[in-house]
């Protein structure tokens, strides 16, 4: 028991060290294309601005949506930005490239290295720039909303923890969808679903009814991603909801891992 604990700690430390080296490599790599950096951040800010404008226009006509006020909704929107930024810092960009890896057979190189291919893929493309604007803007929105809602600093640790749970759900969804890449080869469209997944996550869970609510909780859990962490900060804490999110995260992650490992067997390395 104790021994497996120690080896688990070693594994985590090793993963962190590896992440550090990949991050350093990617930074150097991104520096090669510096001009892109400014443009990408600018685009992110612009796009987040559009999202805020959307809600501002909605709230010009209504006072609450699903019981959420404008400032509470800003926390929702910002939380999606933060989860996305974290995803880009850990795994997201790699999955966008996965189709190319499979089509060209470059994926071979990941399969022969002593790291799990899904972890390696993510680390290989860790990106600071891809979503930096969105992350910063997300932080600003959450901060602004939090200042107006005023739930007190004590809520923050739980909020961060629940962002982590949402990140796990996001990862599981991404992994499960991308398992299909070994048949479909083109990852652009596959990942458009993953993109839509996060795009639709910023609406409060309370707007869903009936069958839709069940689907958006257990199959495509978009109703949990933003709503669960944001409800902690927005003064709408619901322990039942938090338990639900943890259960869904664990369930989806196990399912996605099984699916991914099974799909790997169907990789038919392109010989070019």
């Amino acid at each position: 028991m104790k021994r497996s604990g120690i080896s688990a700690v070693c594994a985590v430390r090793r993963t962190f060290r590896l992440y550090g080296s990949f991050l350093a490599q990617n930074l150097k790599n991104e520096m090669v294309y510096r001009a892109n950096f400014v443009l990408l951040v600018g685009m992110d800010l612009f796009f987040m601005g559009i999202n805020v404008a959307f809600f501002a226009i909605l709230y010009a006509n209504v006072t609450t949506i699903g019981g959420w006020t404008f400032h509470q909704t800003l926390i929702l929107v910002g939380s999606v930005g933060l989860v996305r930024e974290a995803a880009y810092l850990l795994f997201r960009q790699g999955f966008l490239e996965l189709g190319d890896y499979v089509r060209t057979g470059q994926f071979d190189a990941l399969l022969v290295k002593p790291i799990r291919p899904n972890i390696h893929l993510g680390f290989r493309h860790v990106s600071l720039t891809e979503s930096l604007g969105e992350g910063l803007m997300g932080l600003a929105l959450v901060g602004y909303g939090f200042a107006h809602v005023g739930t007190g600093w004590a809520a923050i640790p739980l909020y961060v923890l629940m962002l982590g749970v949402s990140l796990v759900i996001y990862y599981a969804f991404c992994l499960a969808i991308n398992s299909a890449v070994f048949w479909i080869i083109k990852s652009q469209e596959l990942n458009s679903i993953v993109y839509t997944f996060m795009e639709t996550a910023r609406y409060p869970r309370d707007i869903y009814r009936g069958l839709g609510k069940a689907i958006f909780t257990f199959v495509i859990p978009i109703s949990l991603i933003a709503t669960v962490p944001a409800s902690v900060l927005a003064g709408r804490l619901d322990w039942g909801l938090i338990a639900l999110a943890v259960i869904v995260a664990v369930g989806m992650m196990s399912g996605a891992t099984v699916l991914w490992n099974w799909s790997l067997r169907h990789y038919s390395s392109a010989s070019s």
Binding site: R17, L18, P114
Partner: peptide, 10 residues
């Protein structure tokens, strides 16, 4: 740089 990365991977 690629060598250094393999150093850490292996």
């Amino acid at each position: 740089e690629s060598f250094a990365l393999n150093r850490d991977i292996y």
